[in-house]
Write a protein that binds this DNA or RNA. Structure first.
Lengths: 165, 165
DNA sequence: GGGGTGAGTTGCAAAAAGAAACCGACTCAC
DNA sequence: GTGAGTCGGTTTCTTTTTGCAACTCACCCC
């Protein structure tokens, strides 16, 4: 029986293993793109304005071969784009595409969790609304009821993209 | 200059490399706990109600030694707890602690990104508000202005937990 | 005693990560 | 136009991590 904190998915426990596949699970699909030891840290830096190879390498302490590899994959997958920021000599920087920028939600969520459970003296970094300086909040809401929904009140069900064999 | 999609952090570009450290960055702190190839998939399954060793192993296709190792670490770090679900023979299952359940925000965000960028025929799974059946929405809002804030309007600044040397 | 199940260990080969040296195009100071 | 320096990577080699298969252990049912 699902406890109060579990997302109740009793609806669909008839399906077997293949739920894992990227096709059938958007979490798996996402992790296939950003789910390794370095990629999210690279993206965090790009969000913060660190966009050049050398800066990233120094800031993260990542091996250069791995950084080169990860950046190439992120470009290939449309999360970053490699654009020249000067000619003579040509130098490139890595920018977020719209798809990359759309990961901010996830980064904010991960940061929030770290803040709540590991920042004993308060958050090391606070995200604020540029216009008014107020710390922002992330929430899960029901648009119909117009109220916040906590994890125990969420149910999942198969969506239109699910192939039902 | 930060483009419209970048979170502007020009405030604090004076600091050097060590921002990476888990102490100084809550994203790094979070990734230190859940940032490997399998952990988030394990947690996704636990959220969905898959809680036993054998079920997890079959559903994910993960090697048993890795599953044992990841579960032990998650228990050690207070994300899951191992509770007997029957005596004679004693069998255990893994449940989310409050800390683990609090990761739902992040899982929802990752799922949302996968839905938006990889689910060509629509989301494979839809999360709905249990009470009314409406699909839920996740948003970043400014509590003062009481309006949604998009990534380009977010600024970051050092918080109280930042050690400023 | 024999067979089955759940929840793991152990051992070993293959893949990925990490460190460090190397490379090539270019600039700038002299 | 030569030497030193920078940026953005490759190459090579060593160390960790994975992944797979076989094995164990406690218990249950017959």
């Amino acid at each position: 029986m699902a406890g109060p904190d579990q997302i109740d998915t009793t609806v669909d426990r008839t399906r077997p293993a293949s739920d894992l596949d990227a096709d059938a699970c958007s979490i798996a699909a996402t992790l296939a793109v950003i789910g390794d030891r370095w990629t999210l840290l690279i993206l965090r830096d790009v969000f913060r304005g660190v966009r050049r190879f050398g800066q990233l390498q120094e800031d993260l302490g990542i091996a250069k071969n791995l950084l080169a590899d990860r950046l190439a994959k992120l470009v290939e997958r449309g999360v970053l784009e490699r654009v020249p920021y000067q000619e003579r000599p040509v130098r490139y920087e890595y920018r977020l595409t719209a798809k990359g920028a759309d990961l901010s939600t996830a980064l904010i969520a991960l940061m929030g969790w770290g803040d709540r459970w590991y920042a004993k003296d308060g958050a090391p970094t606070v995200l604020i609304h540029q216009a008014c300086g107020t710390p922002i909040e992330q929430s899960v809401r029901c648009p119909r009821c117009d109220e916040p929904v906590n994890p125990g009140k969420i149910k999942s069900r198969p969506g239109p993209g699910r192939s039902t064999p």
